[in-house]
Amino acid sequence: MSEKEKLIEVKNLKKYFNVGKGKILKAVDDVSFDIYKGETLGLVGESGCGKSTAGRTIIQLYNATSGQVIYDGEDTQVKKSAVDKKSMKKKMQMIYQDPYSSLNPRMTVLEIIAEGIGNHEVQLKSKEKEARVYDLLESVGLNKKHANRYPHEFSGGQCQRIGIARALAVAPEFIIADEPIAALDVSIQAQIVNLLQELQQKKGLTYLFIAHDLSMVKHISDRIAVMYLGGVVELAGSEDLYDNPLHPYTQALLSAIPIPDPKIERTRERIILKGDVPNPMDPPSGCRFRTRCPKAMQICTEIVPEWQEVSSNHFVACHLYKQ
């Protein structure tokens, strides 16, 4: 793995929101990970754990409070000229969760997909642009006939494919998929996931796949990072993480997922976590997970566990594995 080229290095990324009355929401708090070229990194966690904020900060929809996002050796957080900014935007794209609200209802599919092309290649003639859009539609399983339709005429899965085509329009290298299948029906989810995998192979894309559905993340990702309350608690290869989860939260998360197999379900012992996720405005001291952790110790309330590599390429932040 270490031979692989790093595409993105996220270093001590923090994103705090000022929520008024002197309160600060630490949505992403000191997160570090690397994304290698051509891989899919899964980012899982429950709602409010900061996974979407992390994605949006990496793509600079939000300005980071501190920390670095280094893309191909270049720090994206440093102020840059408009031209540099634009070329950076071309390299990173995003696919969104809600297939309907992610498409402008007053624009045709052609206009939606052509927008990015127009922004980056101003001199392109409209005929050429159209041809490009038709190609993109084909590549996501739609066709010419759909080009002058409006988003509300499409089903959720089709809308999501239009969103993918829009992201691909500027020929990016890296795509953040922010819960791209959460709003879709089961039978449609597989269509989208297969399409994403197919496109990755064809175009050599790198993905950051954000989701709460661990079984789908495991299916699509090479490595998985698990987030809890603004911090990454475990990062490992997806098979490794599933076979040998180290962090008590990962263990609980894995055991909480109902498996669509009644025989397995009948014999399965669940780790049921007590209580709810604490208020992120007022996170617990020490380890963030300690209030729900079945294996919490005294030290967990006092010291924030260190991010350490326990075995090769398996990182965890937990006092249980202190060397």
């Binding site: 089903s155 029906d185 597989a190 996931v193 299916h219 599933y242």
Partner: peptide, 21 residues
């Protein structure tokens, strides 16, 4: 067949149902 299984190998390809309801 279109659901990913947590306990299955990653190489298992999902077989989606084509089309829309």
């Amino acid at each position: 067949l279109s659901m990913p299984k947590l306990h299955a190998a990653r190489s298992t390809k999902l077989i989606p149902i084509p089309g829309i309801p």
